[in-house]
Computed example of a mutant assay.
Amino acid sequence: MKIEFIDLKAQREYIGDRMDTAILAAVNEGKYIHGPQVREFEGKLAEFCGAKHAIGCANGTDALELCLMALDLRPGEAVICPSFTFAATAEVVAGLGATPVFAEIDEATFNIDPKGLEAALETAKREGLKVRALIAVDLFGQPSDYEPIEAFCRANGIVLIADSAQGFGSRYRGRVAGSIGDMATTSFFPAKPLGCYGDGGAILTPNDEYNEVIRSLHVHGKGTDKYDNVRIGVNSRLDTLQAAILLEKIAIFAEEIDKRQVVADRYAAGLAGVVRTPMVLDGCVSTWAQYVVRVPADKRDAMIDGLKAQSVPTAIYYPKPLHEQTAYKNFPVSGNGLPISERAAQQVIALPMHPYLDEATQDYIIDAVRAVATELGVAV
């Protein structure tokens, strides 16, 4: 059996004719940079989550960087962020000469733990750093626990940036990710729940000033026109062709989130008591960017090998927290270390997850996981 970890071809078949028409129309129109599809998509993106402003850009990493550039982030300043995440979250902070301060994650959700934020703030102060922002990552599709995070940021004058590259469109107690935070970012990398056919990203914000500054920054710091540069900016535009593609994809995005939930529910039922399955906060809905289970660290390699022998693909997100990686190991770590982040990195396994995972294939995956777990004596 050939099993796709993420089946982009199935989606392509589902919307093939509409997609072909949209791409060809953009090509024939000839407005390849900042064509009308870009603004139309920005409007649809903002409408989907209830944000006031949406600004398309070249990729999700640029989206984060543009948010920090809008704050005029400088050396001697710090941004609190999780260590159990992809490098882009901290990369943009260090790249601007500021300091990422790594905070602990919640054991159950993998997202930054609100209870550890005070420790991160104190760590920054001991290092002589002024905390300007906090980046909360909606890891694996689940929104962070925003109410206590927002309260912490308000109390300490910290800007909240929601990194929703994996969780755009998820729901947090009546709000949709993308509309949460002073600024929110997302990525349209093809494997993301809302992905394009190349690179792309966006920033969303309720703040008129941030919107104006970022729209300038992402086109070389332009003022009234592209030859009136009022800021030191970057070149980070969302491509017209990618916007045309995303217009077709966002039209079926809500439907795909529902389908992902069905897949997640089948996994949860079939794997209960076999491996540690994901937990979603009360009142929240995940986009299930990945379906990540946990097994004992000393069993993980054998588990992956056993599943591979049965043609079940897996992945590890993430095998090493940022604070243990060469490029980031000298940045501050809050509290007495990050044991939960380190433990999670040794235990996680991601199983195939996408909206078009049919029941027969998923039953095969579940049976394979159960069989290998039984053979290895995995206990949860």
Rank of each mutant, 00 (worst) to 15 (best):
P143H: 02
Q290M: 12
A264Y: 07
D145R: 03
S311F: 15
A302M: 06
D265H: 13
V378I: 14
R300T: 09
R175D: 02
E212A: 13
D106F: 13
Y32R: 09
I349K: 00
G335Y: 07
P278N: 05
F84P: 06
T277D: 03
I105L: 03
G181H: 04
T185V: 12
G221C: 08
T61I: 14
C153Q: 00
G337N: 06
A327F: 02
R12A: 13
A90G: 09
G43V: 04
S187A: 14
T186M: 05
V333S: 02
I214Y: 10
P339N: 06
Q346N: 13
M1Q: 05
V312S: 01
P143N: 04
P148A: 11
R294H: 14
P355L: 01
E77K: 00
S179H: 04
G337W: 03
I316A: 03
K2H: 14
A368E: 00
N235L: 10
V234K: 15
A124W: 06
Y14S: 11
V101F: 06
L68P: 08
A25S: 12
G174R: 09
P352D: 07
V219Q: 11
I135L: 02
K329W: 01
P148D: 04
I252D: 05
V312G: 03
T21N: 07
A202Q: 03
L338W: 03
H34S: 11
A87Q: 04
A297Q: 09
N156E: 09
A98C: 11
P206Q: 07
P332W: 06
T374K: 11
A22W: 00
A289M: 08
A10C: 10
R171A: 06
A251M: 05
E147K: 02
G76S: 12
A87H: 04
G273S: 10
E212P: 10
T287S: 07
C67Q: 09
K226W: 15
A51I: 01
E255H: 07
C284H: 06
D228L: 13
R126L: 11
T287I: 09
K9P: 12
G16Q: 07
K31Q: 11
S311V: 14
A54E: 01
G335V: 08
I340M: 07
C57A: 12
N207D: 08
K308L: 07
K44S: 15
R231A: 08
S187F: 02
V176K: 09
S341Y: 00
P339W: 08
I214P: 05
L71T: 12
P75I: 04
D282M: 13
V159T: 14
G221E: 01
D282G: 12
I214C: 05
L247C: 13
Q310R: 13
G221N: 06
K299S: 08
I15T: 08
A26R: 00
E77H: 11
K115A: 09
G283K: 11
I340R: 11
K9M: 14
Y291A: 08
E122G: 11
G335P: 10
P206N: 12
F48Q: 03
L281E: 05
I135D: 00
Q362N: 12
D301K: 14
